[in-house]
Design a protein around this nucleic acid. Sequence first.
DNA 1: CGGCTCGATGATCAAGATTCTCATTTCTAT
DNA 2: ATAGAAATGAGAATCTTGATCATCGAGCCG
Lengths: 141, 141
Amino acid sequence: METSDLKKAGLKVTLPRMKILEILENSETRHLTAEAIYRELLDSGEEIGLATVYRVLTQFEAAGLVCRLHLEGSQAVFELERGGHHDHIVCNQCGRVEEFFDETIETRQREIARQHGFSIKDHALVLYGDCSDSACPHRPV
Amino acid sequence: METSDLKKAGLKVTLPRMKILEILENSETRHLTAEAIYRELLDSGEEIGLATVYRVLTQFEAAGLVCRLHLEGSQAVFELERGGHHDHIVCNQCGRVEEFFDETIETRQREIARQHGFSIKDHALVLYGDCSDSACPHRPV
DNA sequence: CGGCTCGATGATCAAGATTCTCATTTCTAT
DNA sequence: ATAGAAATGAGAATCTTGATCATCGAGCCG
Ligand SMILES: [Mn+2]
Ligand SMILES: [Mn+2]
Ligand SMILES: [Zn+2]
Ligand SMILES: [Zn+2]
């Protein structure tokens, strides 16, 4: 969000980078594919290459500004890094993504890793199901 | 393993299908990529196409005979469905995969999904870390 | 402000994984 | 054994993402 974050990461403050950050901040969908960001930029009249979007997102990821997630789709999704770690629930029908953090699960993960002689560094947890959104095509009546 | 499993799934009993099942059963590595299976077949003198391996594995998955996992590699890995559900720990250094099942985590997942109004259908949980295998290049002394 | 230098960009190409197409082969049931 | 349907293999195609390279622009100095 701050241009200082870019400078801190050793990245020049450029128009494509600021526009991509802007979209990640302002989109009601916190979780976006590279292509969704690209299309949004095109729609708003920006001239940008898809390769730049992928490149910039990868740099942002390395700088800790965004997270890359693989949510059972062919394309990765990106989200702004704020708040801190959390995991995800995805609706199989409408694709809606919700976030959660559960200390019980986090703790058990560490215990399990230790039992197996692993020093845990990271984890990926995604729950899949059917949501109760009124707009969800599979909404239970 | 049984040809009856194939017939039950509405699949003809063919040589490629039986050979693939055989490899999934006998490999010491329970988790194999499609290409690993393909290479193993070639090495043992079978004439098979990579497309067939992918096709058959996808059919096996649909029939519930195998599971497809995405373990932080570009390629999916497949494993024979037996025992029942479990999750995975992967070593970042040597790629070793261990399995675990934790009822505490499973229960919390259901509770979290319910709190969010989701009817949970499935989940993916992978822990990443460094293992303590003597052959692991990163083994802590 | 004007120019310099190197990182950034955009267009295109390339790579890797997986699926699709289609002619040919192989099962399976009769 | 034969016919009909399904499966196979070879290769093309697709999709996502990263690499190349000539051009452009941000940051810096005077
Ligand atoms: Mn998130
Ligand atoms: Mn497993
Ligand atoms: Zn939904
Ligand atoms: Zn290891």
